[in-house]
Simulated assay, not measured.
Amino acid sequence: MSNDDILGGGRAVSAAGLARLLGVSSAAVSYALNGRRGVSDELRRRILDAAVEHGMDIPAAALRPATQPVLGLVLADVGNPYYSEMAISVTDAARERGFEVFLSNSSDAPESVAAAVDAMIHHGVDGVLITALQAGNADVCRPLRAARIPFVQISRRMLSAEADFVGIDDLAAGAEVMDHVLDHGYTKVAVVGGPVSSSASAHRADGFRRALRVRGVDLPRAWNITGGLNEVDGARAARHLLDQPELPEVIVCGTDAIALGVIAVLAGRGLQVPDDIAVTGFDGLTTARTSLVDITTVVQPRPRMAAEAVRLLHERQRTPNAPAQSIVLPHGLYIGKSCGCATRTEKIHV
């Protein structure tokens, strides 16, 4: 087959035709023509030389030196310190690979996630890390695919997105922390979870309830609470529970931030943790594991999650059509004193 056949019988060459001629991906041609990172300097020169040779109009961006590569990070809600700590981990991991990071807080609002993604596309980021995807958010992914910008889901995932994912087994972790609670002999258990539209929150709550069913412990409707992820949501849930005719012996929370809000309200009512009511969390916040608070909690390996997510983005730039990867990392269980244990220990699953 001749070059004319490949390029379309002598017509002005298209980016797709140039990619076929050079035997490279359309994404590589797009990166080179738009002055974006994602291709080597040698391949960039080869693509631009071929584009000039075949009479393509070269965008001004392609003639400027490629700037420092930038990743976008869309956070669910920095009101939950987990996302602040994740932002630090992602920034550290990205800089180790030569990337800078643009951050956006979505306040867990789908329209804000979409707006953040659109802004990142407009500013030409080289990849996007998203912690804020919820059920039904597929529309967020389409503009990224259209712009040929790789993205990775962190903690939360949508299977329909068919995109790379890094997280933990929230279902198993939820069951494990609940099993630990039930090993204390508690039978009056309340659950305060995050939004069911979040896959991570939904799986944690499923793990809590599964462990309760296996052990034959009932979960009264009034003690099964779903809401937001932050301290204010935990405080609201605690006030609801304290207004009930009977108090639970333990409150199992879907995040450490929720647990901190619960503990604050209990303290304000003169109730001691764990003597009057035990409390557990989820996420492994640094502040939640200090001797002052000492919350029993599932520990997510944030630095490793961040490093794997950045690595996946880097690989996706080089092999944009490779199958999506799902990386499930081992979690830990930190045993503090908030559950009623006398000593502090930590188990890491490998």
Rank of each mutant, 00 (worst) to 15 (best):
A50Q: 05
L271C: 05
D57K: 15
H180G: 15
L33W: 01
Y31R: 15
V214W: 11
A278P: 04
Q68D: 12
Q317C: 12
E162G: 08
R204I: 05
A202L: 06
E346A: 12
R304I: 13
R289A: 05
D118Q: 14
C141A: 15
I335T: 14
V196E: 15
R145G: 14
A115W: 03
A50D: 04
G207K: 03
V310Q: 00
M305P: 02
L129P: 00
G340V: 04
T187C: 07
P195M: 04
E162P: 01
V191C: 06
H123F: 08
A135L: 11
A173E: 05
V113T: 09
R64L: 10
A138S: 13
Y186V: 05
L159W: 09
M120C: 07
V140N: 06
P220T: 10
T91V: 06
L71M: 05
T287L: 13
R97F: 00
I168F: 09
M1S: 00
E249R: 08
I327Q: 07
P320D: 13
I154L: 15
A172C: 13
R318Y: 01
V279T: 11
A200K: 06
A15W: 06
D169R: 09
F102P: 03
L241N: 00
A200E: 11
G185V: 15
P301K: 08
C253Q: 08
G227P: 02
P69K: 03
P69G: 07
Q325S: 13
Q134K: 13
Q325M: 11
R64S: 09
L266C: 03
P220K: 12
D169H: 12
D218K: 11
A19T: 07
A190V: 05
L285T: 05
L313D: 01
D170N: 14
H184W: 08
G284Y: 08
G234V: 00
G194I: 07
A309D: 00
Q272S: 15
A175V: 02
R209Y: 10
R11W: 04
R215W: 01
D126S: 15
L43C: 02
L73C: 07
A161W: 04
V279W: 06
V196M: 13
G261Q: 04
G270C: 10
L103Q: 12
A147S: 11
G23I: 07
P143W: 02
L75Y: 06
R20I: 09
T297S: 14
K347Y: 14
A16F: 09
R236S: 08
P330T: 12
W223Q: 01
M305E: 06
L285M: 12
S30V: 10
P330K: 11
A222F: 08
L266E: 02
A306Y: 01
R44W: 00
R45C: 13
N230T: 14
T131P: 02
L63M: 13
T319V: 14
L260K: 03
R269H: 15
V70H: 04
C141K: 03
A267V: 12
R37Y: 15
L242G: 02
G9N: 15
S104I: 02
L266P: 01
N230M: 09
A257L: 04
A237I: 05
T319M: 13
G254R: 03
T290N: 11
N137H: 13
M120Y: 07
V101Y: 06
Q244F: 06
I348R: 15
D243M: 08
R204A: 03
D276I: 07
